[in-house]
Design a protein around this nucleic acid. Structure first.
Lengths: 301, 301
DNA sequence: TCTTTAATAGCGTTTTACGCAAGCGAAGTA
DNA sequence: TACTTCGCTTGCGTAAAACGCTATTAAAGA
């Protein structure tokens, strides 16, 4: 009888649909099914009536729903009471890229100051690609990161914004820019003739690799760089064309130094959000930041 | 945040001693320690103050204690409500030996009829030695059994009574009886000369094997039999000497047919009690029987 | 009859919990 | 001062639980 199971039950009791609850809770249908089954075994009676097409609450299920609501509310109340009333032993550590600091994070931290003034943030900045690793290893509680292709199971991911991955080129006239414009006139860009500045590792590198492989392009790599900001900086210096999330290009101090390259079949769009270990999310401090973030960027569809 | 952890916390909050709570809860000190540590992480603050010699509740710990009491009471209330109010889908199945039926079990079932009239028991009888296996395999919810030498981790054991393991011999005059009496006059029984009727398997067999091995005795096995009742029956027929818990000897219809053999260093005493899978104990029906049994035989020390 | 939808069951893998034993600091003892 | 005891924590290996993927089953709709 743990609170997690109660949440699952409440979700199913609301949607009356195991699959939809699974999606909402970021877990598989079978996990939902078995969580409910366990609960039913523990209670000793079926909570839902399944007639193969429709799910309804049994009488016991209704009773249990009341209980679950109360119980969960009690728990949340206690969390609030102790979370703010107590002397807040620790702080929350957060890893993010420089860009995230003043684009994504600023409004979250502003809101947080209002709702949880006693919560202290220890921020570490670096290449966005390292975020997942640092969270998994427990170095940081949270990371702003691009949604990885496969979210590891012990990780929770909260999408905040979408930003398309973009190719970009120097804005000032230079050899690279001229060659891009020339090949655009031809209708197709000759990637193999252009120096490309790519991420050293991370999701964007993987996406780029896929994109190139699909088109059977073997580009001429000018440099592999850690951090999208650094890529944009190098592009603005005219060293080559690069790749970065639009968000980074726009908000780099060098925004005017680079132009995006528009393509018919562009690169995929990225989901950027928060990542944390499930385990750590049990902590009220971490969860506080998590929830404020979710409220600051509602429904990033 | 599950109810099990709350129980552990409440116990420690009461004893203010991790080791003692561990004993009371039938778990190791380290398990208690880590359960509390998990709880503290989840709450976000320490619940106990440990100054290496003494354990005290912190302010947060006191708050949490209130919450834990309430929460657990709610849960138990719900269990009662649904456990008795509902239409009790299943019944509880119980495995035991014939002897247990009318010695141990009778008062428990009588009490149960009073407190839980709607609870139905499906009883299976057979060799006591099979009880643990049947519970582990989920064939029965509960078994009356001799406490195994090593209790498997997913099993919960509730001691009810103690009964010494005894050697016994035919009560009527016969060759076997005479030989026992004769060797008792010599001061030492010559085990190797006497036909021995032993359990086929189970805890009593293991205890007997140990006892014989310690004394470097290689007995003459007349028969290996399943079920202590059958052993007593064979002994009463004069086929040899046997071994069984005193309880079985006394309450066998053949009580007058066998005599116990008193020894200086007798066989160890057995703990006889109820066994169930931890998992199954979450069910209110199973727990009902469990608790009534515990109340019927309080403190079997 | 075939397809679609939705829950459950089997199987292999990951994650979590546990027991044991070692560690370690403070208090008691010789 | 050195040694022992007490009691909580920690590292490590193992056992159990939970999960995701995939197959299965069953009902409803085309």
């Amino acid at each position: 009888m743990d609170t997690r199971a109660l949440s699952v039950f409440l979700s199913v009791a609301e949607t009356l649909n195991f699959s939809r609850s699974g999606q909402a809770l970021h877990m598989s249908v079978s996990a939902v099914s078995r969580t409910v089954a366990r609960l039913e075994q523990e209670v000793g009676q079926p909570l839902f009536e399944r007639d193969r097409r429709r799910v309804t609450l049994t009488r016991a299920g209704n009773e249990f729903r009341e209980y679950a609501r109360r119980s969960l509310a009690d728990w949340q109340q206690l969390q609030r009471k102790l979370g703010s009333g107590g002397e807040l032993a620790g702080e929350v550590s957060l890893y993010c890229s420089v860009t995230a600091t003043y684009t994504l994070l600023a409004p979250i931290l502003a809101a947080l100051r209002g709702t949880h003034p006693s919560l202290e943030i220890m921020m570490h900045t670096g290449d966005q690609a390292d975020g997942i690793g640092r969270v998994l290893e427990g170095q940081d509680d949270l990371a702003v990161t691009i949604c990885p292709l496969n979210v590891p199971p012990r990780l929770e991911y909260l999408p905040l914004v979408e930003s398309p991955l973009q190719f970009c080129m120097p804005a000032s006239n230079c050899q690279v820019r001229e060659r891009v414009l020339a090949s655009q006139d031809d209708g197709r860009i000759d990637w193999e003739a252009l120096p490309l500045i790519v991420p050293e590792r991370g999701t964007t590198k993987e996406l780029l690799d896929d994109w190139l492989r699909e088109r059977d392009v073997r580009p001429q790599i000018y440099a592999q760089v850690a951090g999208h900001e650094a890529i944009v900086a190098m592009v603005s210096l005219g060293l080559g064309i690069g790749i970065a999330p639009q968000l980074v290009i726009e908000s780099s101090g060098l925004g005017s130094g680079v132009d995006t390259i528009s393509l018919e079949q562009g690169l995929p769009s990225l989901s950027i959000g928060l990542a944390a270990l499930r385990q750590r999310l049990a902590s009220p401090l971490v969860r506080a930041l998590w929830e404020v973030a979710g409220q600051t960027y509602p429904d990033p569809v």
